[in-house]
Simulated scan of single mutants.
Amino acid sequence: MLVHPQFDPIAFSLGPVAVRWYGLSYLVAFGLFLWLAAQRAAKPQYATRGWQRRDVEDMLFFGVLGVIIGGRLGYCFFYKPGYYLANPLEVFMVWKGGMAFHGGLLGVISAMALYARSRGRHFLEVMDVVAPCVPIGIAAVRVANFVNGELWGRQADPSLPWAMVFPQSGESFARHPSQLYQALLEGLLLFVLLQFYARRERAMGQVASAFVFGYGCLRFVAEYFREPDSFLGLLALGMSMGQWLCLPMIVLGAVLWVWCGRRAPLAKAGAGVKS
């Protein structure tokens, strides 16, 4: 069996300031988004509609706020609502940890809706630019979870070549390195699939809905290998909170994809968009 190396969570220090791997992973995620989204905005179907790099930079600003605020609120009220309703001031104590992807997603969607309205662009068009650029950033954050030795997996067969003991768990049995599973599934694999799917012109909103559906499916699978939160355990039907939160994503993504498919392609759909 492998044993988690127990990396130092602090990447380096600048005087009294400690820079953590987790924080660096978010910087990497935002940097990759800026690069990828700028390339996507330069594609003919977007460039002809007035998209420029400064639009991507503005989207990033809105998106960062959405990730941080939504991710924190999602953790507080999806996973520990009773505790944070009783201790509301601790919602702001982000240094104690606690971020949830599903909350961050809702935060980004809200932020992009505000961005679209402020720029006079169609919300689905904005989300089509954003969606294919997100998964690689998710992969970066999952790698940081592995470095920190957190969000470890469920018990695994010790004969599995990559089964790993996480001393941080307080247990000595082998586990699945589920952080890496998630980095590969909802990160790298979803990124490759969306890049391939988005190469061709699609109906407005179909790329974004493919992301929602794809992430929901891949995260649902990954949750079977991830240890449920100790304060929640498995919920109804033997599913984790993460799986229950993925179900509406899967349904919404599929319904939205079909609905968008009945609309005109992006190059022909101009309603509600300004150049």
Rank of each mutant, 00 (worst) to 15 (best):
123 F>D: 10
123 F>V: 13
123 F>Y: 15
123 F>C: 12
123 F>W: 10
124 L>G: 13
124 L>C: 12
125 E>C: 03
125 E>L: 00
125 E>M: 03
125 E>K: 02
127 M>Y: 10
128 D>Y: 05
128 D>W: 06
128 D>I: 01
128 D>H: 05
129 V>I: 15
129 V>S: 06
130 V>R: 03
130 V>S: 07
130 V>H: 09
130 V>G: 04
131 A>H: 02
131 A>D: 11
132 P>S: 01
132 P>G: 03
132 P>V: 02
132 P>T: 01
132 P>H: 03
132 P>Y: 00
132 P>I: 00
133 C>W: 02
133 C>Y: 03
133 C>G: 06
134 V>H: 09
134 V>D: 11
134 V>T: 14
135 P>E: 14
136 I>H: 07
137 G>D: 03
137 G>E: 00
137 G>S: 02
139 A>F: 11
139 A>M: 03
139 A>G: 03
140 A>T: 08
140 A>H: 03
140 A>R: 01
141 V>Y: 09
141 V>P: 03
142 R>C: 04
142 R>K: 13
142 R>N: 02
142 R>T: 08
142 R>E: 01
142 R>V: 07
143 V>Y: 08
143 V>M: 00
143 V>N: 00
145 N>W: 12
145 N>A: 09
145 N>D: 15
145 N>L: 11
145 N>C: 09
145 N>E: 11
147 V>D: 00
147 V>Y: 06
147 V>E: 02
148 N>V: 02
148 N>Y: 00
150 E>Y: 02
150 E>V: 04
150 E>H: 04
151 L>P: 06
152 W>V: 10
152 W>E: 13
153 G>N: 05
154 R>E: 14
154 R>F: 05
154 R>I: 14
155 Q>K: 14
155 Q>I: 14
155 Q>A: 15
156 A>F: 08
156 A>N: 09
157 D>K: 04
157 D>E: 06
158 P>Y: 12
158 P>F: 13
158 P>R: 13
159 S>E: 14
159 S>M: 13
159 S>T: 15
160 L>N: 09
160 L>K: 06
160 L>V: 08
160 L>C: 07
161 P>F: 09
161 P>T: 04
161 P>K: 02
161 P>E: 06
161 P>G: 08
162 W>Q: 10
162 W>Y: 15
163 A>V: 07
164 M>S: 10
164 M>C: 13
164 M>H: 11
164 M>N: 07
166 F>H: 04
166 F>V: 07
166 F>K: 09
166 F>T: 02
166 F>M: 10
168 Q>H: 13
169 S>I: 02
169 S>P: 01
170 G>L: 11
170 G>C: 07
170 G>A: 06
171 E>V: 13
171 E>T: 05
172 S>P: 12
172 S>K: 13
172 S>R: 14
172 S>C: 10
